[in-house]
Amino acid sequence: MTALSLRGVRGGVGTSSVLAAVGYALHTLGERVLMIDMCPENLLRLHFNLVASEKTGWARAMLDGDDWHAQAWSLAPTLALLPYGVLSWQESMRVEQQLLDDPILWARRQASLAAHYDWVLFDLPQRLQGHAMIGPCLFPIRVTEADAACHVLMLQEGGTAPLLVNRYEPGSLLQRDLLLIWRTHLASRLLPFTVHSDEAMREALAFKQPVGQYAPASLSAQDALSLATWCLTRRREAQ
């Protein structure tokens, strides 16, 4: 089983939408996929028509003493979603402390899932260190936008994780200039494609669907398919 994680350089860069799109794309390519929402905001479920009032999830189960794996929703025969659950901020901080106290918890959980899925995809929060301790991950991708805030944050952060540019607008001179700078100075980290700015991605969430299901011919759906195909190719090279 291969792990992929998406984590925003800052908030609001569309990480959950991209993860939903990539998970659906991998599913359409015949892979068995489990998507796990590690964010207290618990938004990933909304991309797959789970009702907003549904409170269950792995973190909710963790506090209530229930089985975490029983909280997963089967969306299709080879596609599943494990929501975070509805928690107060204080409850999420209790979960954070438990994860910090047991940093290999998700590594053990990943091992228990290996026989059932080809891919496990993690939607990671920005600043909760414990929630980001997910175990072995072949594709720890950071999601960014071509704007000044992300540029500064990436310079401050450093690191070696692959970078995916989301909501790229080729008509924007600023975005083109920033992408040129990144291709010069961050060439070893920058993925060889972007996810373009596309109204279909925003509409898909309004219709409670991943973009590949809502508008399979859209530019953003094709970009997500390109990322899924790239991941499959790199996985074969790593084996």
Rank of each mutant, 00 (worst) to 15 (best):
M1F: 09
T2N: 05
L4Q: 04
L4T: 03
S5F: 09
R7F: 00
V13F: 06
G14C: 05
S17P: 05
V18S: 09
L19G: 05
A21N: 06
G23F: 14
Y24Q: 07
Y24G: 06
H27P: 09
H27T: 10
L29D: 14
L29K: 13
G30H: 13
V33G: 03
V33W: 00
V33N: 00
L34E: 06
L34M: 06
I36D: 04
D37Q: 06
D37G: 08
M38G: 08
E41N: 14
N42K: 05
L43C: 11
L44M: 09
F48E: 00
F48H: 00
N49Y: 13
V51I: 11
W58C: 04
L63K: 07
D64M: 11
D64E: 13
G65W: 07
D67A: 01
W68H: 05
W68P: 02
H69A: 13
A70C: 01
A72Y: 01
A72D: 00
S74V: 10
S74M: 07
S74P: 03
L75T: 03
A76Y: 02
A80G: 04
L81G: 01
L81F: 00
L81S: 03
L81Q: 02
L82Q: 02
P83Q: 01
S92K: 04
M93H: 12
E96R: 12
D102G: 13
D102T: 06
D102F: 11
P103N: 12
W106G: 02
R108Y: 09
A111S: 11
S112P: 03
A115C: 10
W119R: 04
L121Q: 05
F122I: 09
L124N: 00
Q126T: 15
R127V: 10
L128W: 12
G130V: 02
G135C: 07
G135Q: 05
G135F: 01
C137D: 08
L138R: 15
P140Q: 06
I141E: 04
A149M: 15
C150L: 11
H151Q: 15
H151C: 09
V152C: 14
V152G: 07
L153D: 03
E157D: 11
G158H: 02
G158V: 08
L163M: 01
L164D: 01
L164S: 07
L164R: 02
N166Q: 08
R167W: 05
P170K: 04
G171E: 10
G171F: 00
L174E: 11
Q175I: 14
Q175M: 11
D177L: 11
L180A: 15
I181Y: 09
L186K: 05
L186Q: 13
A187E: 13
A187H: 15
L191I: 05
P192N: 15
T194G: 12
H196P: 12
D198M: 13
A200L: 07
A204K: 00
F207D: 08
P210E: 04
P216V: 07
L219F: 12
A221Q: 04
A221C: 11
D223S: 12
A224D: 11
L225V: 15
S226E: 12
T229L: 07
T229P: 03
T229F: 02
L232I: 13
L232V: 15
R235Q: 15
E237L: 09
A238M: 15
Q239F: 09
